[in-house]
Structure formats: C-alpha cells, structure tokens
Design a protein around this nucleic acid. Structure first.
Lengths: 195, 195
DNA sequence: GTCTATACCGGGATAGAC
DNA sequence: GTCTATCCCGGTATAGAC
C-alpha cells in the first residue's frame, strides 16, 4: 500500500510541474524512490498511474469550492471570497493545465476526469451566482451559467498570464479587476431595485 | 527562400495543433515536404525554427488588436467588439498555449516572445479601457491595468474551458458574461455621473 | 541547398531473478 | 512485491553523397 501511495503522489507532483507528456515513468520512479517494476505491478503503466493521480488531485481541488455554497456572508461575498483565494499563478492550475496537453486531450479517460472537474466547479459557480441574483446583489438580467464561465475563465486565464510573465502579479490583477466588475454590477443592481 | 518559408509555416501549424514539446522535427519535415537535412541547413534545429515560427505567429495575432485602438464606436463598444471577435475555443490560443509547455517556459528565448506578446496586448487593452473611463463609460474607480488583465484572462480562460469540454460554447458563454458585466459596470458609471 | 543514412539518447514497457 | 536488466521505438542531431 505504501508503494502505491508514493507512486501516485510522485505522479501528481510531476503532472503539476511538467505536465503529462513531459513526465516519464523514469522521473516518477526516481521521485517515488521505487524500482522500475513496481509501477507496472500496481498499474498498467503511465496512463493508469496518471488516471489515479488525477482523480485524487481533482478531489483535493474541488474541496475548497464548498466555500461557494456555504460560509459566512452574502452570496456575493462568497463569490468574491472564493475568487480571492490565494493562488500561486506561476505554478499553473493542476487541472486546467492538462487541457493544453495534446496527449491528455487525446486520452478519453484523462480528459473525462478534467471535464468532470470543470462541470462540477461550474455548477457550483452557477448556483452561487443564482443565489446572488435572487438576493438582489447582481442584476436580474444576469445569466448564471454565463457568468460562471466568465469567472472560472478569469482564474484559468490568470494562470496563463502569470506564467507568461513569470510573475504572480498578473493573476492578482485579473482577480482584482473581476471583483471590481462584480462590485460595479452589484451597484447597478441595487440602483435598479431602488428605482 | 521557398524551403525556409515552408518550414516555418509547418512549424507554426504544428505548434498550434500539438504544442512545442509534442512536435518533432520529423513531423515538421513531413508536413513541409522537405528532407531531413534542409531544416539543419536553414536553422540551428528545432529551437531556432520554433523561434522564427513563433515570431511570425505573434505578429499575426497582434494585428487584430488594432481594433482596440481604432475603429468606429465608443471606447466601450470597441472593447466589447474585440472581446466578441470569433475565436475557435477548442483549438486554443496559439500564444497562450505555449505558457503551459514546460519546455517553452524553460526556454528564455521562446518565453520572451510569449511574454512580449502579452505585454503588447495588455498595453492595448489598458489604453482602450482608460479611454472608456475618460468617456464616462466605465466607473472612475476602474483600474485600467487590472481590468485589462481581467479581460485578457477571460479570453485565455475561455480557451481552457472550451478545450476541457471539447466544445465552443464555454468560450462564447465566458465572453457573453464578461460583456454583460461591462454593461452593468457601465450602467453604474452613468448612474453615478448623473447623480 | 537538399537529400538519405545513420548515430545517440531517452521514453515506455517487459522479463525474470530475488 | 520489488528489484535489475533489457528491448524496442521514436526524438533529435550529424555525416556526407549528390
């Protein structure tokens, strides 16, 4: 059990640092500190190991999005708080990153895990946005599914900008700009309501 | 001259379809229809060929962003029009894509080209946003550099979402949501001005 | 300048000893 | 279950003929 765990952990780390295609079984074995054969005893190969590693990564990453549904404050506060969670931009998103890897996109099983993660995530965004609209914090004309994709895109795009510049700042700036936009939209909603 | 051109064109296409790491000199030569040695006659290898190909791609991609500075309509109209330009989401951004490739990020020259492209792009966004603020179409509190990064991130993130789902729709939805947010912010700005 | 042939290395998987 | 040794293939670069 120990060895299996070490392998998935090592694979998850390397998937983040280098991506799927750029990670070789050799690298994984070296980091896990196990011999060549162990990986093929526990898994069918690089693919199977990556599947198990990604399933764990997705589960970990989806956990904090519970903040969108629960927690203190108004729905809009929860949206802004989740948006503003610290994110190490230059390291990239462990899930979104996979999307640019041709070998991942060509692999139905891996792509399915990634697609499922985004589905779940976007559903949570949509629900929280619908709550904010119902509370009169966002304009009644807001389309929750659209705005959910916009906000998820700001985060994913923030990673892209941060990596392009090799700096955290573009990510933080993108989030600040999105929060400011939400505040302005909220002001417009309140003005319309009181009219 | 002919051969050199065929090589950079083939490399640019493959960079888009498969990324840098996943593109082999073999692939490029096959697509360009030239022999093995030609590439090493004109370039120092895969790296040099990719540099020249990316420089051309960046120049092509930056051209339409002139729409942000010129064109009909108010500054806000121009922002919305540029945002709404058709983009094939599932194919990904030819420049932003590079950002997730470990071999590109580790390559100072290639990364420099990518970083420079984003610098130029973001500057144009910022200028157009500042124009919109000056025209009273966006709140005076707007930070142009922040919003520029937000909008660029929506586009880049839209590509990520589209590829994750294997569909164009998430990209279009993300853009619609951003445009709606801009409209709401604009309404708030006008309300504040007339107050 | 362009071609074919070839060298070298590392990715990915297997065999089989312990 | 885990290890080492080995195999095959393709990525990348070079040699050298035409």
């Amino acid at each position: 059990m120990e060895t299996r765990e070490r392998l998935t952990t090592a694979m998850a780390e390397l998937l983040w640092e280098r991506g799927y295609a750029a990670t070789s079984p050799r690298d994984v074995l070296a980091r896990a500190g196990v011999g060549q054969g162990s990986m093929y005893h526990h898994f069918d190969g690089k693919h199977g190991l990556a599947v198990e590693a990604m399933e764990r990564v997705v589960a970990d990453l989806l956990a904090p999005s519970a903040l969108l549904a629960d927690g203190d404050g108004s729905p809009l506060d929860r949206l802004k708080r989740y948006l503003s969670l610290p994110r190490a931009g230059t390291r990239g998103c462990r899930v979104g990153r996979m999307t640019q890897d041709p070998q991942v996109v060509a692999d139905a099983e891996l792509l399915g895990i990634v697609a499922g993660a985004f589905d779940t995530m976007l559903g949570r965004w949509s629900d929280a946005i619908a709550d904010a609209v119902a509370a009169g914090e966002l304009p009644a004309s807001t389309v929750p599914d659209d705005l959910a994709r916009t906000l998820a895109a700001v985060i994913q795009g923030g990673y892209v900008l941060a990596r392009a510049q090799g700096a955290q700042e573009p990510m933080d700036a993108a989030i600040r700009g999105a929060v400011a936009l939400l505040d302005a939209a909220s002001a417009a909603a309140r003005a319309a309501t009181s009219a």
